[in-house]
Design a protein around this nucleic acid. Structure first.
Lengths: 225, 225
DNA sequence: CATTGATATATCGAACTGATATATCGTGCA
DNA sequence: TGCACGATATATCAGTTCGATATATCAATG
């Protein structure tokens, strides 16, 4: 789930961990306060999978791109010092700037368009996908919205069973009822989005999906006929 | 978080794991689909902490309450067979029925009234507490509602910063705006609950908090003056 | 020039999820 | 009768995420 978020942000520009966290929190509002204990391992994971790479875009001068091998410094620390030495002036501080790779772009599209894993925190998962919906082909976008709508409709049904069921106390009852209202509100919102999407597809004015600028990936996705 | 839910349910009656899951899902709607990988470890945890105990309430006849020591059966399996043998008719099947202990009641009150851990999934945490709000002293209940209200108000402020900030694309923007609306809706709901609580406290008719029937715990909580 | 606070990366243990394994019971159906 | 199947039930595993904490640097402040 977090992988998708990271890849989505990196698609717009190179970023370092701390900044990724800031954007997720301040701009998107998803992942209210994503923990570094999730973020950094996720970045390592993605790096290991060659979906992202350290950009090392450095400060002003692009000095030797590969670590100059300082010799005596012991293992782990050496890496840190090397990075610090590589970009000392101009940029804020020693930081690992990541960029997305071609494989990363592929992975992103794959994750974004994949069926939601049913069980997990639906709202988060959907929210994240919607936030990056501009990267989806128009029909995939519509499918996402409709899948979510169906999900909420199902929830509404179970909610009705709940209120009809064993008598809940005042507070639990209020909670369930408020939940139902919120779901209805969500569905109405989705209906507006779906309507808007349909219109956009009926009258396609100029470019409506990102200037993705010919990356081989879109061909795989079946934008087609 | 899950501990609170378990203790809350067990407060009403003895239950086994599978049934706890069912209630959380079907009746409360919290924890959409709580995993057994969380539930059973949580029960073990609580049992280790002496907050719950296996009730072994058995079927029709309360045969020997302690395992009769079948001898040859090897370790783990022995426990299962013993339980199975202990309550073969009447009840559904071999199951571990848990009951809450005095320490468990104490822990429940402590968890329920504790300050929310700020970071975590607020909605879930609050929802859970509200579902068991009847176990709280009137002022603690009011405090819970007001704490939540303040939380949402803060969120509303950051949301406004978000929309004012860097221009989001159509979808991300719609997401944020809908989130804001939902938060406003939540606050209005809380206001209604708070109002209702205030009235209840002003005109206290008969018993308004559970027939808790003199357990020593309430004394600790400072219900007082 | 020491202290504090913001920026930044990293790691640990505990908790939760999704998947899977195992066993038993009840029911339908051949 | 028997036996396949689905529901009930407990348990465990690997992979993620979270909250806390450690460490280091830089900027501002007094």
């Amino acid at each position: 789930m977090l992988d998708l978020a990271i890849l989505g942000l990196l698609q717009e520009q190179e970023l370092h961990g701390y900044e990724i966290r800031r954007r997720l929190r301040d701009e998107l509002g998803l992942f209210a306060n994503i923990s570094f204990g999730s973020l950094y391992p996720a970045l390592s994971r993605l790096e290991a999978a060659h979906a992202v790479a350290v950009a090392e875009s450095g400060g002003t001068a692009t000095t030797a791109p590969s670590m100059p091998f300082t010799g005596s410094l012991s293992g782990e620390r050496a890496g840190l010092r090397a990075r610090r030495a590589a970009a000392p002036r101009g940029t804020k501080r020693s930081r690992k700037v990541y960029r997305i790779t071609d494989q990363g772009l592929q992975l992103f599209d794959q994750l974004l368009d994949a069926d939601e894993p049913a069980g997990t925190d639906d709202a988060r998962s959907f929210g994240l996908r919607l936030a990056f919906a501009r990267h989806l082909a128009p029909q995939a976008r519509l499918a996402l919205l409709e899948r979510r709508r169906a999900q909420l409709t199902r929830r509404l049904a179970t909610d009705q069973v709940r209120v009809a069921g064993p008598t809940l106390d005042v507070y639990a009852r209020s909670l369930v009822e408020h939940g139902t209202e919120a779901t209805e509100h969500d569905i109405a919102w989705l209906d507006r989005l779906i309507e808007s999407e349909r219109q956009k597809q009926a009258a396609p004015r100029s470019e409506n999906h990102e200037p993705h600028a010919g990356d081989a990936v879109t061909a795989m996705k079946g934008i087609n006929p």
